[in-house]
Structures are given as structure tokens and as C-alpha cells.
Design a protein around this nucleic acid. Sequence first.
DNA 1: GTTATTGATTTGTGATCACACTTGCTTTGA
DNA 2: TCAAAGCAAGTGTGATCACAAATCAATAAC
Lengths: 242, 242
Amino acid sequence: MQKAVIEKNNEVIAAQLTPVGRETVQDRVYSELRRALIGGLFEPSQVLTIRGLADALVTSTMPVREALGRLITEKALEALPNRSVRVPPITLERIDDLLRARSLIEGEAIALAATRMNPRQIASVEAMLGEWDEMRALKHKKDIDREATLNQSFHFEIYRCCGSAVLIPMIESLWLQSGPCIRVAIYAFSDAGEVDTAHYHRSIVAALARQDAQAAREALVADISRPFAFLRDKLQSANRKD
Amino acid sequence: MQKAVIEKNNEVIAAQLTPVGRETVQDRVYSELRRALIGGLFEPSQVLTIRGLADALVTSTMPVREALGRLITEKALEALPNRSVRVPPITLERIDDLLRARSLIEGEAIALAATRMNPRQIASVEAMLGEWDEMRALKHKKDIDREATLNQSFHFEIYRCCGSAVLIPMIESLWLQSGPCIRVAIYAFSDAGEVDTAHYHRSIVAALARQDAQAAREALVADISRPFAFLRDKLQSANRKD
DNA sequence: GTTATTGATTTGTGATCACACTTGCTTTGA
DNA sequence: TCAAAGCAAGTGTGATCACAAATCAATAAC
């Protein structure tokens, strides 16, 4: 068989097969811990032990300690001087700090995205909006986890369009850091009666559709400010009580 | 001895002693690799091996692999699908991307710092400027490493005043990512004849001294844009030649 | 009853080993 | 002569072990 024929044949095979991609245990542990943090499964100030997590995830300590180290460097977890690690506690300063950083960076990302999104991409996020409404209409009992996941997809679908390989990891890091805080706020939200979150997302999409970068930025900032402001008030009144 | 007396005594002792702080081998390896990356000791696209680094640093593989993992998550290094790790290559898109992110975030940091720095802090960075001039005056032959270190101290001394525990680690990550690129530019600079960098730093300090946040931001952006723009031109002309 | 002290358990850290995958070179066959 | 198969050295990953430090409980001392 001639070389050209073989290569052609290989190409045909390659077109039908999808790369299998070896994922290491460490990567799976890392992803799982990320998911747990963003989802608020760990509460602020909770301490995590390597062996405890290893048991829970049914692996050895090795992948866990490496994943923990990575999460500590992106400030998603905190290394105490005792060498134990915990999820960072919530403070007023930290809330304001996170909100400012998120407004700045996610605002920039969406402003860039507004000028770069093509009609197909806009239609895609618009479709997510519709899917969202359906879910909301179907079940009056709120499914917070599902809602949070959908919210995350919505935002990152937009951010991905900004075309910056530098900004996006930073935004992921920020979500990781604010995950535990936000979750506390969300729970408080759903206790305190519902606010219409759909409105904010709708104005974001509208701004994107008419390529209005400034409006998109403002709508986004309003969206992410809401839970932070709520949490801020809650914390302040708690402090006053003491 | 009564309890209060003992505690008082302990306080007196504590005031005289500085905490020794157990630094792990992993931390030392991590710091050393950071220093090497920011300092440009590794060149873009160079691949690093765990055992190679462990030999060079005279430790076992364990601390090295953990340090590498951390550097990969902050995008200071890149994990190839072959599972080898390398320092990220320079591309035009990456240069623009890094410059935009740095302008955005470091600009925000210095704008915050401008409103918060007290006279003592301003005097401190002003003093660094003087020390800088001395060094420059003494030796005509440029000591690039010393210059880079001083530049880094100068910038972070200012950033620390912004009072944001979220922004500063992000800036460190950005310096880590742009370190190898910048170093290439700096070397090219010193080959191509000197530009007066002192001027930029002087206008930064001047803006800070009169608490002019906007001017400080603009002066900073001009300062960090310079090597990026230089590198950009260099790369473009290199591409044209091919 | 409260405060120290001791001892046992838990925990993080680093070293070493086993295994699987990659890479580069040599050998073999047409 | 050249491409493909085979082999050997190198490399990352995960498991396990040894050790030191921290934590906590129970005991002893006042």
C-alpha cells in the first residue's frame, strides 16, 4: 500500500473517532472540588483535610494534596499558619473587594464580547434565556443548584466570546473565590422571597444584541451586584446585633 | 505566678521576637521558580522536567511537581497534551491580551492607591526613585537583573497601597505570565540603545503625590505599554521576514 | 473547680517505589 | 536507501511509608 493511501485512510478514521483524552485523577479531584466550591457545598471557614477529602473522593492523598495546592494558589482556599486549609471566611472587606474586582474584569470581558459576538452566538445565549424561563415556569419550588448551574453557563458563554485567554481564567478564579459567599446570599434570597433575576439577564442580552458595550457592562454589574449587596446588608445587620 | 503576669510577660517577649515561620520545601521551590520566571531565566517555549528541576534545586521530585502544578493553574506554565510542561510561547495575540489585562487591573490598582496613599508611603516610593537614579549614575554598564528587581519593587510597593487582597494576587499572576515576554523585550531594548525609563516612573510618582488617580493610571499604562509595544513591533517585523 | 501536663491520635510533608506512557534510537525488512 | 517495527531510556502519576508537628482528651496538681 502506498503512503498517500495509508494517510488518506487514517484521515478517514480520524474523522469518525473522537480523541479519548486521558484525564488524570488529580484533574478529576480538582474539577470536583471546584464544582463543590462554586456550588457552595463547603461553607465559609470550614476546614478541609487531605485524608478526609481523599476518603470522600475514594482516592489516595496524592491527587488531593496537589489539587488543594492549586486551589490555594488561586485563593479559592486559604492555607492557615497551622498548615491546615479552610475555605476563606466572609468579611465585609472581602465582599466589597470581590465585587469591585468582578465588576472590573467581568465588565471588561462583556464589553469586549459585545463588540465581537456574531448573531449565532447571540442567538445561543438568547436560547438559554428561554430555557431558563421554562424551568422557572415548570416548578414553583426553586431548584437552586440547577439555577446556579444555568446562571454560570449563561455568563461564561458570553465571556468566552471576549476572545481573551488571559481574562477568562481570572474570571474563573473570581467565581471560585466568591462561590461560598454567593451561595450564602442565594439561600438567604430564597428565604426572603424571590427577586426577579430574569429581568437583569434579559437586559444583558438586549444590550449584547445591539452591540452596546457600555449598556452591557452596566447591566452585568447590576446583575452581579445584587447578591453581594444583599449579603452585605445581611452581614452588617448581624454585626450591629452583636 | 499569676496568669495575668505570665501573659504580660509573654507579650513582652513576643514584641522582641520575630516569628520564624516554617517555610516548606515546596514553598521554596515555588518561590524560586517564580523568581526565575519573572526574571526571564527560562525562555518562552522551553520545556521543563520534574526530575531535571529537582536535580537543579537539589530536592526530590515531590515539592517540584506540586510547585509546577500551582504554576500551571496560574497560567505561568503550560501543560502540553503530552503531559510535559513548558513556559508558554510568545504570540502577537498573547502580547496584546496580556497588555490589555495588565492595563486594566494594574490601572485600577494604582487608581485606588492614589486615593489611599499617605505621605509616608509616597515618600517611600519617591525614595526608591532616588536610589534608582544613583544606581543608574554609578554604572554605565546596565545591570538588567538589578534594574528589573527594582522595577518590580517599585510597582508592587504602590499596588500594595490599593488595599485589595483580591487584585494583588491577580497582578502577581499577570507579572508571572508576562515575565518571559518582558525579559525578551528588555534584552532587545538594551541592545537597541536605551530609552529613559526614569521619566515614566517620575510622572507616576508625581501623579500619586497630588492624588490624581486618572493621571496615575495613564502614566502607569504608558510605562507598562512600552516594552509590550517594542516586543510587538519586533515580532511583527520578524513575521514579515518569514 | 480550674489550670497544666502528659500521652495518643490525627494531620501535613517529603521520599521512594511501581507502573504506564512518551520519545528517540537502533535494527530489520522490502 | 528508506520506512516501519522494536527496544531502551526517560518522564509523569499515583500509592505507600516515615517523620514531625498539631490537636485533643484525659489525668494530675493546685
